[in-house]
Design a protein around this nucleic acid. Structure first.
Length: 581
RNA sequence: GCACCCAUAGCUCAGCUGGAUAGAGUGUCGCCCUCCGAAGGCGAAGGUCGUAGGUUCGAAUCCUACUGGGUGCGCCA
């Protein structure tokens, strides 16, 4: 249920009537017709641009179309006035009962209110985090994890069939470095002293892994050549790192549906298969790239390589898929991985990357377009960096100084709920300030607190009503008479609730979960405003001790708000508060 | 040199497939808040939407050029 689409259908019906009467020509595209809340409340409750966007194709003046539509719309019970305004807007005012009764519908729908069928069950793969399995995740990974997870939840809420996926970079040189580092810890576990070469991973987190390796293989590899132990240690080490990562993710409430191993691509020959697919399309060739202008690397020399003709699909230059020693570049398994995703039948792919991977966007999109015959859209979201603050002061991360902030540190310091909400209060492509003190602050400045406080207040008033012996169960509330909700603040709150399904669709269409966070803040703000008004005007208080009917009406509205807050926080992966401590 | 992202109130940021007088928080200023619904409330001021063009009935939004900041640019994944 979505009031805006309901009224949109009404507008479409009115247009059809005019067409059958010959006032408007047939065959008009209604796609650009919108029904939305006007920015200025003085313009009514909803406005449609129908007359303006149909003017040109219908070869009529916008105001003439609007004048013809207005009386037809006004016939509907829900609409009290339909006025032509400005260049041809049609401003609609809805009957108070529409807003009042909305609360009952919301309560009846419960957690289904706001869910949308726009996804039509289409299958979407959201790939996120995909941190190298070489150590614990840091705070930057946390943002990617949270944005990816919320995006996945958002799309599921909007009716898509969503898979949450993690690409394990376990096929490259860095996991060999990991294996060698673990081997050194293994030697240490046998009380041998070791030298740590440049570029290894000397972090403490590998000590346990070395011990565990010792427990598993004993002294088998103490005197062995690297070629004998490398593969087993590598597998052992990456498994251990993935356990670590899974645990870290779980502490944020992030649970993946599927982990995909880069290494498996080499083992199964999928890379060759994907490249063959491209070759069949004539997109693979031997050639020599121009050096980048302005900044030629010192050791540049022209070299013939195997290239993917990504320029056919909008990239700036063609991209190498093989190194000069004949092995694959990083891009090749990535092509194969996305080829696999396309082969698995997804209708849409979403990748959540760090901003430092911005240069890969065009080539990945080119590869997916080529491999899917442009059937599968790929949206890549770049996550900008997180700037840490403590007491308002910038907080630099440094491994050496011991100020390296891990994902787990963040969860332990501020909690999963606050971390998640805060990371979603910014567009993902804008840098985010994360101040440990502000995120924990209990004030209006902190949207996490403000939204949770709203849900806590509603829980509180429900408890109080029960104590006062007023029946406020959902079954009772959805049958209540809400015609007493006439105050501007009450109607305004109901209107905000009415916007929820519309907002979900906008956020889902744009793949931007931060819109949910902003909406929830506004909704909470409207609730607090009404609540505060109850301080001066007791008739606005939700709990009217001696008037059960009025209490039920007011609480029905509050309950509808809490339904939306729960649904919205659910998308963000944040638990609604029932009380504040 | 090229590509991508960003630029909106003093500060931090929203702003819908282009829509009417561009919003919020914070800060500033004024008023209120001794107890009941608490971690404040009400109101005011504050803008050439980076600059210059273009498309359009209509542009913060789309296009072009420029300025400033970030990221990246063949055998690193």
């Amino acid at each position: 249920m979505n009031l805006f689409t309901d009224i949109g259908h009404l507008v479409a019906g009115a247009i059809a009537q005019l067409q059958s009467k010959g006032t408007l020509p047939d065959g008009l595209d209604l796609g650009p017709v919108t029904v939305e809340p006007p920015r200025d409340p003085l313009h009514g409750d909803m406005a449609t641009n129908a007359a303006m966007v149909l003017a040109k194709p219908a070869k009529m003046k916008p105001r003439d179309i609007a004048e013809a539509l207005a009386p037809l719309l006004a016939e509907d019970d829900r609409i009290t006035t339909a006025e032509v305004a400005g260049p041809g807007f049609l401003n609609l005012r809805l009957a108070p009962s529409v807003w009042q009764d909305l609360a009952k519908d919301v309560i009846a729908k419960g957690s289904a209110y706001g869910r949308s069928g726009m996804g039509q069950g289409k299958r979407v793969n959201v790939e996120y985090v995909s941190a190298n399995p070489t150590g614990p995740m840091h705070v930057g990974h946390a943002r990617g994890a949270i944005v990816g997870d919320a995006t996945a939840s958002l799309l599921a809420y909007a009716g898509y069939d969503v898979t949450r996926e993690y690409y394990i970079n376990d096929g490259g040189a860095q996991v060999d470095v990991l294996a060698r580092s673990v081997y050194l810890r293994y030697l240490e576990a046998h009380d041998l002293s070791v030298d740590w070469p440049e570029g290894s991973y000397p972090g403490d987190y590998l000590i346990d892994v070395g011990e565990a390796l010792k427990a598993k293989v004993g002294d088998k590899y103490l005197e062995a050549e690297e070629s004998e132990w490398l593969e087993e240690v590598r597998t052992f080490a990456t498994d251990a790192m993935m356990d670590l990562i899974r645990t870290d993710l779980a502490s944020l409430g992030v649970v993946m549906d599927h982990f995909f191993s880069e290494k498996s691509l080499y083992d199964t020959g999928l890379i060759e298969k994907a490249i063959e697919e491209l070759r069949d399309k004539g997109l693979i060739y031997r050639g020599t790239l121009e050096p980048p202008k302005g900044k030629t690397p010192e050791d540049w020399e022209p070299r013939e390589q195997t290239l993917f003709k990504s320029t056919d699909y909008g990239d700036d230059v063609d991209r190498p898929i093989k190194k000069s020693d004949g092995s694959w570049t990083y891009f090749a398994p990535d092509i194969a991985y996305h080829y696999d995703k396309v082969s698995r039948g997804y209708d849409m792919l979403i990748d959540i990357f760090g901003a430092d991977h911005g240069g890969y966007v065009k080539r990945m999109k080119a590869a997916v377009s080529a491999l899917s015959e442009s059937r599968v859209p790929l949206d890549i979201k770049l996550i900008q960096l997180v700037k840490l603050f403590k007491n308002g002061q910038p907080f630099k991360m440094s491994k050496r100084a011991g100020t390296f902030v891990t994902l787990r540190d963040v969860v332990e310091m501020v909690g999963s709920d606050a971390a998640r909400f805060h990371m979603l209060t910014r567009k993902s492509d804008a840098a985010l300030d994360f101040d440990f003190d502000k995120v924990k602050e209990q004030s209006k400045e902190n949207p996490v607190f403000y939204v949770q406080y709203a849900s806590a207040r509603i829980s509180s008033v429900l408890r109080k009503a029960a104590e006062a012996g007023i029946d406020c169960t959902d079954d009772t509330l959805r049958a209540a008479d809400l015609s007493g909700l006439t105050h501007d603040l009450e109607i305004a709150l109901a209107k905000k609730v009415a916007e929820w399904p519309r907002l979900v669709e906008i956020a889902a269409r744009t793949h931007e979960p931060h819109r949910i966070a902003f909406y929830l803040f506004e909704l909470a703000s409207d609730l607090h405003t009404l609540w505060n008004a109850g301080n001066d005007d007791t008739s606005l208080r939700f709990l009217q001790e001696h008037d059960p009917a009025a209490t039920q009406a007011k609480i029905a509205l509050a309950r509808a708000v809490s339904v939306v807050i729960s649904g919205g926080l659910g998308i963000l992966g944040v638990t609604p508060a029932t009380e504040m401590r």
